[in-house]
Amino acid sequence: MARSHEPLIRLARFKVEELQKQMAELDRSKQALINQIERLEASVPEEQAIATQSKDGYLAYGSYAQAVIKRKDNIRASLSEVEAQSDTLRDRLSEAFQELKKYELLEERRLARAEAAVREAEQAELDEMASIRHRRAH
C-alpha cells in the first residue's frame, strides 16, 4: 500500500503558515510606513501656520520643510523595499500553497485507492460467500 503524504502535507502547511505570518508582518510594516508619511504630511500645514507667526519661525520652517521632504523620501524608499519584498514573498506563498494542494490531492487519491481496494476485497469476500452458498444449495 502506498505511503501516506501526511508528513509532506504537515511540512507544506507549516511552510504556508510561516510565509503567511511573514506576509502579515510586511503588511504591518507597509501600513506603519504609510502612517508615518501621512503624519508628516499632516504636520506641514500646522508648522506653516506656526512659522508665519514669527520671523524666527519663518526662517526655521525652511529647514523643517527640507527635513520633512528628506524624511518622506526615505520612508518612500523603505516602502518600495517592503513592497518588493511583499511581491517576492507573495510569489513564494503562491508556490508553497500550490505545493500543499498537490500533496493534499495526492493524499486524497491515495485514500480513494485504499477505499476502493477495501471495497473490492469486501466484494470479493461476499462473492466467495455467495458462491459457497450456491454450491451448498445445489
Score class of each variant (00 low, 15 high):
Ala77Gly: 07
Ala96Leu: 05
Asp73Pro: 04
Arg110Tyr: 10
Thr88Cys: 03
Ser86Trp: 02
Glu83Val: 09
Thr88Phe: 07
Thr88His: 11
Arg109Val: 09
Lys102Met: 04
Lys101His: 07
Glu83Asn: 15
Asp87Lys: 15
Glu99Ile: 04
Asp91Val: 11
Leu106Ala: 15
Ile75Glu: 03
Asp87Ser: 06
Tyr103Gln: 09
Leu100Lys: 06
Glu99Pro: 13
Ser94Phe: 03
Asn74Glu: 03
Arg92Leu: 07
Leu89Ile: 06
Ala84Gln: 14
Ser78Pro: 02
Thr88Asp: 05
Ala96Cys: 10
Asp73Ile: 08
Leu105Cys: 01
Glu108Cys: 05
Lys102Gln: 14
Asp91Ser: 07
Ala84Asn: 07
Glu104Leu: 08
Leu93Trp: 13
Leu100Ile: 04
Asp91Tyr: 07
Glu81Tyr: 14
Lys72Leu: 10
Lys72His: 04
Asn74Met: 07
Ala77Ser: 13
Arg90Trp: 00
Ser80Arg: 13
Ser86Tyr: 01
Leu79Tyr: 07
Leu100His: 01
Ser80Asn: 14
Glu108His: 12
Ala77His: 13
Leu100Tyr: 12
Lys101Glu: 15
Arg110Phe: 11
Glu81Ser: 14
Asn74Thr: 14
Glu95Ser: 03
Ser80Tyr: 06
Arg71Val: 05
Arg71His: 04
Ser94Val: 02
Thr88Lys: 08
Ser80Val: 02
Ser86Lys: 14
Glu81Gln: 13
Gln85Phe: 00
Arg92Phe: 12
Gln98Asp: 11
Gln85Trp: 04
Lys70Asp: 11
Leu79Lys: 10
Asp73Gly: 10
Glu83Arg: 10
Ala84Asp: 13
Glu81Gly: 07
Leu79Glu: 14
Leu93Gly: 07
Asp73Gln: 10
Glu95Leu: 11
Arg109Trp: 06
Glu83Met: 10
Ser94Ile: 05
Glu107His: 08
Asp91Arg: 03
Arg71Tyr: 09
Asp73Ser: 08
Asn74Val: 00
Leu111Glu: 14
Arg71Trp: 12
Arg76Ala: 10
Tyr103Ala: 03
Arg109Glu: 15
Ser78Gln: 15
Leu111Trp: 09
Arg110Leu: 05
Lys70Trp: 02
Arg71Ile: 01
Val82Met: 03
Leu105Trp: 08
Glu104Trp: 01
Asp91Leu: 13
Arg92Thr: 09
Asp87Arg: 08
Glu95Lys: 13
